[in-house]
Design a protein around this nucleic acid. Structure first.
Lengths: 229, 229
DNA sequence: GATACCTTGTGGTCTGACCACATGGCTGAC
DNA sequence: GTCAGCCATGTGGTCAGACCACAAGGTATC
């Protein structure tokens, strides 16, 4: 076993045993190295991995917030991993689109009937913001992503909404890059806006089947238009 | 930007540009450090992150296989991240079960009608192996996991089957730990075996709806019996 | 020609040092 | 007594240099 893996296992064991909890600070790099009988570079490599996994956040300086703090951010590692594997071209974009359809259809179906009026209103505000004329296209896509993640969150499943958010973020760059393939943007944007409102209305009405159908058409249509799917 | 992140971005850019392809080797740690004007520990930290993300595999020694080789393994990082976040107790087991039901229902529905006889036969062999009397319980669960992943693979979506595999692996330890909660194991195992065969039969018959329903009941029933869900 | 050895290049690890940064207490002025 | 400014302290960030273990492939020996 490599030295930094020893450190990783130790930290994971402490997490599982409850010795390390959310918000706690890891011992300093020098102290941890001393405790485990390894060198500081090995501890640092382990902390880099934990950081990449979204388990700790490090910051320099002094005070209560300094050092390596335990956080719970399952999203960022997933996003980063998806981005990297998309870059290697060994993760077909079509599979990602299909997965989005699958997850979002389920999420809006689940959200129908359990979404509170205030949650629906919050999503509505995002749609209103997207109605603004002369909205830059990148801003449009960011709001769009936020809306879809908000829908996924309504289903109340942390894992599903996390996966959704990561999928959106990982492909955001590709969506922007594909912009030239949709020269006539204005009518497309109008269609997307209308579809969003239809989906949200179906959720508010508690009509899960319609919501699922509408969101699937919405996603598939967009990727087809963007030549991404 | 921290130094090791600079290295990461450089590698990601090379991947996206096609300068680095699957199977290629990264320059040696010393060479890479020299090229980018950073120190070797910084390069090493970056490589640790890439390794954690399943983008490279490192090995010592000499020859064509030595060093850091580009691989495509989106599964292991996902597994590790899920394990760690389960350890922090900020990822409810119920959400994982729900996600499994969602993904597997879709997968078996998709697999119905597109699975070839040879694929079904391969899955059947796993079930036959699970029929062996006096099979150790851990071995049973491993074969069970393999069977479920095989089903997910039949749907032909890399992302979905990868997520599925990671979910299974991440919770494997918890399943084993929950074994004492199912004292009367023999009839439970018999039920699981029967359910497996029913699911596979439905897939072979092309009856997607039945397959989806059966697999959902199978998964939910198991977690309920194990007091995990 | 086959075998044992050794050269070479790889990652793995450690030591020790210095830097940048943020805090928090200390010191001095008022 | 109060407050502003300063500096000691502890943190991660980075570096240089060294040595080890390992595996391949060439080389010398028998």
């Amino acid at each position: 076993m490599r030295t930094h893996e020893l450190v990783l296992h130790q930290v994971e064991a402490d997490l599982a045993a409850g010795k390390l909890r959310l918000g706690d600070r890891l011992p300093g790099e020098r102290a941890l190295a001393g405790q485990l009988g390894v060198s500081r570079p090995s501890v640092r490599e382990a902390i880099r991995v934990l950081e990449a996994m979204g388990v700790v956040r490090t910051s320099v300086g002094s005070g209560p917030d300094a050092g390596a703090v335990i956080v719970a951010d399952p999203g960022s590692p997933l996003t980063a991993a998806l981005r990297l594997h998309l870059a290697t071209s060994h993760l077909p974009m079509g599979d990602i689109v299909q997965t989005r359809v699958l997850l979002e259809s389920w999420a809006v179906r689940e959200a129908s009937g359990r979404a509170t009026p205030s949650q629906v209103a919050a999503a509505q505000q995002l749609l209103d913001a997207m109605d603004e004329p002369d909205l830059p296209r990148e801003r449009f896509h960011l709001l769009d992503a936020e809306f879809h993640v908000a829908l996924a969150t309504l289903a109340g499943n942390v894992l599903v909404s996390t996966i959704m958010a990561s999928l959106r973020e990982a492909i955001h760059g590709y969506v922007i890059a594909a912009a030239p393939h949709v020269p006539d943007w204005t009518p497309v944007a109008a269609l997307l806006r209308a579809q969003h409102r239809a989906v949200l209305a179906a959720i508010a009405d508690g009509d899960g089947d319609s919501a699922a159908k509408l969101v699937a058409e919405h996603i598939e249509g967009f990727y087809k238009a963007s030549r991404l799917g």
